[in-house]
């Protein structure tokens, strides 16, 4: 299996497109940091200090807590936010500025949708391209069972996603260190009973692992489409379309019970820690179960079609 993955990895990085994607990712992140820096340097200094900002945060968190519609995860979140804001004001503990390495790293998980995009391209093409190049005949007439070949391709796609996620974080850390440097401030967390200082690296890691669930699901979906339809353009098109429209559909389906079993209600696992939940009464456990079921369905369809298919092209 290791040799098969090695093969897939070698093929992947022998393609120019892969190097272009890696370059593009880094360039976009560089531009992002550059633009943030430029906006900071051209806009006038803020009129209000961080204390006023924290007071506003406190008020809005308290407002949210009065809202009867919020779910348990949101309840915890806003309680934490209120407690942290009170603590900051009471102890003169300044938060990170947006233009600091720390805050950029904390927000880095939002950039992982780029990784999803590239993973969709790779996942959609990794099986489909073998068919379009005609190399599938060479690949399947070896003493290796088809499910092993498909597994090596799936693992390679996921390794690619991981590598790109690492590149994303390394680039964000590097570029924000160059442009903004390490700022003042403390990272605070609410552990349920008191506010303590936490590690922003650990928090960033947690949020990005949760964000990668969406990369994983959409990547798997694209992989399935590419395997079933043997057309990477179709698989890329449909996956990217769903990536954008799928989330919007959550709002349309909001009133119906079925929304709780809908994939895109659950793909963003960071929602349990950022307070923004379109469907407030779902839980992390429920999301993980729904995602697992979808994953299994995607996998069964991919393996079944790949193993059974007569190769005629």
């Amino acid at each position: 299996m290791l040799k098969l993955i090695q093969n897939e990895w070698m093929k992947l990085w022998s393609k120019k497109a892969t190097w272009i994607m890696a370059t593009l990712l880094i360039v976009i992140l560089l531009a992002n940091a550059g633009i943030t820096k430029w906006i900071e340097s051209t806009s006038p200094a803020p009129e209000i200090g961080w204390q006023e900002m924290e007071e506003m945060n406190l008020m809005s968190a308290q407002d949210q807590l009065q809202n009867p519609d919020i779910g348990p995860a949101q309840q915890d979140y806003y309680e934490g936010q209120a407690a942290i804001a009170e603590y900051r004001l009471a102890n003169d503990a300044e938060p990170f500025k947006v233009e600091s390495l720390q805050q950029q790293v904390l927000d880095g998980h939002m950039m992982l949708s780029l990784v999803t995009l590239f993973t969709v391209i790779v996942g959609a093409g990794i099986v489909a391209s073998e068919f379009s190049q005609g190399t599938i005949k060479m690949l399947l007439t070896r003493p290796v069972k088809r499910w092993k070949i498909l597994t090596s391709k799936y693992i390679t796609t996921m390794l690619f996603a991981l590598l790109f996620a690492v590149i994303t974080f390394a680039s964000i850390a590097l570029f924000s260190w160059i442009f903004f440097g390490i700022g003042d401030g403390a990272f605070l967390v609410w552990n349920g009973s008191e506010v303590v200082e936490g590690s922003y690296w650990a928090e960033a890691l947690k949020l990005s692992v949760l964000s990668l669930a969406s990369t994983w699901m959409i990547g798997t979906f694209a992989f399935m489409l590419g395997t079933v339809f043997r057309s990477s353009s179709l698989a890329i098109g449909v996956s990217i379309f769903l990536m954008f429209v799928g989330v919007q559909l959550v709002f349309l389906l909001q009133r119906f019970e079925i929304v709780k079993y809908y994939l895109f209600t659950h793909t963003d696992l960071t929602q349990f820690y950022t307070g923004f939940m379109p469907i407030p009464d779902i839980t992390m456990a429920m999301s993980l179960i729904v995602l697992t079921v979808y994953f299994l369905v995607f996998m069964v369809i991919s393996y079944w079609t790949f193993a059974k298919r007569d190769v005629t092209a």
């Binding site: 098969l4 090695q6 070698m10 093929k11 022998s14 120019k16 190049q133 060479m138």
Partner: peptide
């Protein structure tokens, strides 16, 4: 099988290494 389709974006040698790993 018919025209042997190889991975055009790799060298002949890498193609052979690729297939050798599968045996």
């Amino acid at each position: 099988v018919e025209n042997p389709e190889m991975y055009k974006f790799m060298s002949g040698y890498k193609n052979l290494v690729h297939f050798a790993r599968m045996h």
